[in-house]
Amino acid sequence: MSSARRARDGARPPIRLLRNLSSKLAAIPMVLVGLGVFVGGTIWTIVHSFTDSRLLPRLNWVGFDQYERLWSTRRWLVSIENLAVYGIVSLVLTMCLGFFLAALLDRKIRFEDTFRTIFLYPFALSFIVTGLVWQWILNPDFGIQSVIRGLGFSGFNFDPLYNPDLVIIGLLIAGLWQGTGLIMVIMLAGLRGIDEDIWKATRVDGIPIWKTYIVVIIPMMKPVFVTALVLVTSGIVKLYDLVVAMTSGGPGISSEVPAKFVYDTLFTRQNLGQGFAASTMMLVTVAIILIPWAYMQYREKRQ
């Protein structure tokens, strides 16, 4: 009886939905997170950025009012400017420094593991810890400034965390310290992926090492650079903890960043509509960076 039934089952295609059932059940978290949280949450935020929600979200449409207000808020403008400056400088320096360190480590050196461990360990630390240490080192009364003045250079001034014009530099020093290790590792993996024979060939051709890097190696590592770029960029947009720990946005509002603006607007100033508009702008920024990249990836795949 049962074998007869099985024979019949084997002859007939199973119902579409039930085919691969365990797999579909196991995919439920992914579907919920993807559709429910990522897509649903994003749409929800965008929709509510067109309302006048304050303490609680509500659907009272006000068109682009929130955006107009946002772009006439000085604090937001400062945040955007800071993010742009920090972003560009940190991007360039992280990539250069990361590649430079990777190239150094790739020169068949001794103690490679030790050096790599040293360059990468800050990446294991949180931005809070990073920010607090550098806040201490950059402390004008006890830190670098005071030490150098103590050496006899009494006119020496370096107090980025207390100087609105320099505060971004303070953030950069800490941010680079924490983040370059990651890029170095990625670049190193890219360098290691390059065929040894390429090096032999350039050696035979008598091309100097620095030139080999620029003419041969870097062009070959384009995908690695792109990955690193995307990683760094998406990290920069999220910049928040470091600022909170190092400066709390100060002095004044000179080191505010968008992520902090959103948090403060949503949870301390309880101006939800404004916060949603600001976070939607962050999303737009990311999209502007990502869409060309995604398009590039897509086109490469099609070829």
Binding site: T45, A259, L283, V286
Partner: peptide, 13 residues
């Protein structure tokens, strides 16, 4: 989802 800034999803969550 990995590229959506957390700030966008803070409140929905």
């Amino acid at each position: 989802g990995a590229f959506i800034p957390y700030q966008v999803l803070l409140y929905p969550l």
